[in-house]
Design a protein around this nucleic acid. Structure first.
Lengths: 213, 213
DNA sequence: CTGTAATGTGAATAAGCGTTCACATAAAGG
DNA sequence: CCTTTATGTGAACGCTTATTCACATTACAG
């Protein structure tokens, strides 16, 4: 009775449905019946387009990796200053989480990390790449004199990512009890104060004061 | 055949066994059979001491809350300087995680946050209290002139906790692929550099230089 | 010493889940 | 138009898991 669609289209629909289900019921509530219902098809039809649930999770991992990593990489390749790039990545990341609450749940889900070695390794690689991208930007900011000279790029990148991650999880846990945008804005503002190169006191350093105007 | 024990003792044994199971197999692998096996009793006997699995999770939440929060609160009540207290809490927290890998898994598990509203609320309250304790210490450090004057206590506390949390999850995910102590030591060292009040350049501020010696 | 309540257990029950199968039906090529 | 292939479905299967039940056995109060 229902119209038929190409497998490529169905695969995309299934992955999207799965991400939505995770946003609503968590990875624990990600059942074949739930995915099928959300995607508007029967349970059995899922298996026409994916070998099994594991394959859906792998496809979801690729999809998320492309979204998060891809966006960050393209911003990092731009030609603004390092701090502006970091801000853009931060904003983009939190906006993506706000639009897809399933994203952080998937990234740190046990079902994935303990249930599928290959997928766990792939996600770990993606996260390492993300940290690497952030580290590179921070190192560039230090070299350019925008950021404090004595900070460690990698550890600072982890602090930034941890801030995002903890906030995403708290938001997820409390079912959106606070305003994610406002909270992340406060966090970013404070973080920038911590890492930005301190302006020397004005009356002691006339020459630098000229630059900053 | 086996000797009988008081319900209080059994409850403690069951909670301990559950925490160990989570460390090995995650919250997803926390089954009644697994707990019973680890605690050396039959599945049915679990129900003599707990009404059901949910009640075990609630007891585990209380146990963990006491450990983490209790330790932090007692350190915060001490009489060292704020930075020393923060360092002690940081070390204590990471040491506790190293000894009980199930701890961060439980704290951020979906099964808990989506499966039991009351428990989720209780854990959220505990986490808020923890952030509050850290914020208070940071604010005290700012007042005492140990930390940078322009940092927001709450947001800085979240950055610190996020750093711990992300590292714990990465460690958990990679099955202990890196040295947790060494990694957290690097992170703390960098974090201290970020938040500690910058020493003014010596030859410009003789009076302050006297204090710092 | 005796009976009563608490503690312990193997087996059975019921529900949820991923997956498969036999059968229908739309789409596409000749 | 017709045949073949891809797509779609309800029903059934096998497995895991939490929970309950009838039945022992230990601890303990009197």
């Amino acid at each position: 009775m229902p119209p038929k669609k190409n497998t490529h289209i169905r695969q995309e629909e299934i992955v999207q449905a799965a991400l939505q289900v995770i946003g609503d019921k968590g990875v624990h509530g990600l059942t074949i019946t739930e995915i099928a219902g959300r995607a508007g098809m029967s349970d059995a039809n899922i298996y026409r387009h994916f070998k099994g649930k594991q394959e859906i999770l792998e496809a979801l991992g690729e999809f998320i990796g492309e979204r998060v990593m891809g966006k960050a990489a393209s911003i990092a390749a731009g030609k603004e200053c390092a701090l502006a790039k970091l801000a853009a990545i931060f904003r983009g990341h939190t906006a993506l989480i706000a639009a897809n609450p399933g994203l952080p749940r998937f990234m740190f889900s046990e079902e994935i990390h303990l249930g599928n070695r290959e997928l766990a390794a792939a996600m770990a690689t993606r996260m390492a790449g993300y940290i690497e991208t952030l580290s590179g930007l921070i190192a560039a900011g230090v070299s350019a004199g925008e950021l404090q000279p004595d900070l460690s790029p990698r550890e600072t990148a982890i602090a930034l990512l941890g801030m995002i991650q903890l906030t995403a999880l708290r938001w997820s846990i409390t079912q959106g009890a606070f305003n994610l945008e406002a909270e992340t804005a406060r966090l970013w503002e404070n973080f920038v104060r911590l890492i930005r190169r301190q302006q020397p006191v004005a009356h002691l350093t006339e020459t630098l004061a000229m630059d900053s105007v």
